[in-house]
Amino acid sequence: MSINRISNAFAKRTANNQSTFIAYMMAGDPDLAISRELLLGLPDAGADIVELGMPFSDPVAEGLTIQQAAQRSLLADTKMAGVLSLAKDFRKAHPDTPLILMGYANPVHHMGWQVFAKAAAKAGVDGMIIVDLPPEESDPFAKALTENDIALIRLIAPTTVGERLPKVLSGVSGFVYYVSVTGVTGDAVPDATEVANAVQNIKLHTDLPVAVGFGVRTPQTAQIIANCTDGVVVGSAIVATMHKTGVKAAFELVKKLADATHCKT
């Protein structure tokens, strides 16, 4: 059911020759109540899939924008239980929109791989991305997720080449998340030609949809990237707009980004 939700979301856009728009936000930034308002409004603003960031004290793959969002969230005393309660509210309001949780290993490990997977499934979560859990370390969590019908979405980086690429892809479900640049979130702007080549290469090894993230901030970039892939992820730009101007401005940005992503040329 959960993994199907993800496939259906991509299939719907692909059928219209469109790319899928994935919006990222940080749970609990600036507090649970306001982030709930943003979360619940994202599908209507145009997000096909929502990625909900779980705050962590030491997020080593994040640029300053998402680091600070995590800090604000933790300062507001966001707990993992709170993140899961947001997921539950989202599922109630949006029965068909896929929800992915993205974060770091320790808070999940602290709860226990099994316990967490079960709780996430109960809250209606469809997929998980754990940035610091490469294939070499993911077996126990992957097993727990499979048992609970949650997709384990893996990151493929520009450095994932040669024999490693099929190896990393072998355990993926849901979709493939291609990290467009070697760097942290919200940093350098991806090179469209390089991204197109990388996506082509990934598709030689998998039938799953490929989404591209890291460094996509504007509708212009979103559209360029949308042309060479199945999905576009935007995070830092939404988080920054939300922080500076509020929920309404974030919805406006999401709408522009979604429209640009959906408008494949």
């Binding site: 080593v60 290993a105 610091d132 490469p134 070499e136 370390e137 990151l155 493929i156 450095t159």
Partner: peptide, 20 residues
């Protein structure tokens, strides 16, 4: 071979660093 000392150690890094 997994870089473990009993239950400890390992390689918990983002994919970008894993090949390196």
């Amino acid at each position: 071979d997994h870089g473990r000392f009993g239950d400890f150690g390992g390689r918990y890094v983002p994919e970008t660093l894993m090949p390196l």
